[in-house]
């Protein structure tokens, strides 16, 4: 047999009259209404709610402290603990980006710098926040762990040009990260 007959529940006469079940349903919604008016809604604490219902009144109260560790916000570039630009401008993030939000112009590293073995660093690195879809593929693909998604979620623009984030800005937002990548150490 190519199909499996589903066993439907058999309704009693009381169920089919419908009125009793209707009253039960009305009771459930009324309980929710009263609880939210009293400010005692379920899981209000988890949502950082205040006042009526379980909702968080947004601009007055923020979600920031409750963000999970895996939250994907705006992508940023990071430096190592030695202040080295981690990005080696391999352009993998540029190629993988499904929204084509990233543009990298490769440049060379000064041979007198502490990490001359790195050879390349981005001359320009731009992320268009109007195109970015916060998918996190750039972070996954990066072999140097140079690009990370931050927890910044509130990006309000008054101008299209503000959406274009340049290299300096991205480094400033990203800050520094410790460890992980040590292969460009000149003494190694």
């Amino acid at each position: 047999m190519s199909y499996i007959p589903i066993k439907r529940p058999k309704f009693s006469l009381l169920d089919r009259i419908y009125v009793v079940e209707l009253v039960k349903g009305l009771g459930i919604t009324m309980r929710h209404l009263i609880l939210s008016l009293l400010g005692k809604s379920r899981s209000k604490k988890d949502f950082n709610g205040a006042g009526i219902g379980a909702c968080m009144p947004f601009p007055e109260q923020r979600w920031d402290a409750h963000l999970p560790s895996y939250y994907r916000g705006a992508p940023t570039l990071v430096r190592g603990e030695d202040g080295r630009e981690r990005c080696v401008s391999c352009q993998l993030c540029e190629f993988i980006c499904p929204a084509r939000a990233i543009r990298v112009v490769p440049g060379t590293v000064d041979p007198n710098s502490p990490t001359p073995k790195q050879e390349k660093a981005p001359a320009e690195f731009e992320i268009d926040m109007l195109r970015c879809i916060y998918c996190g593929m750039c972070q996954e693909v990066c072999p140097e762990q140079a690009i990370f998604l931050s927890k910044e979620y509130l990006i309000t623009l008054t101008d299209r040009n503000q959406a274009l984030r340049h290299k300096e800005q991205l480094y400033q937002l990203g800050g520094t990260r410790k460890g992980l990548i040590n292969k460009w150490n000149p003494y190694k």
Binding site: L33, L37, C55
Partner: peptide, 12 residues
Amino acid sequence: VAGWIQDRPGPN
């Protein structure tokens, strides 16, 4: 009322 029933404040 829709808001209250759904544990939201509604348009306030």
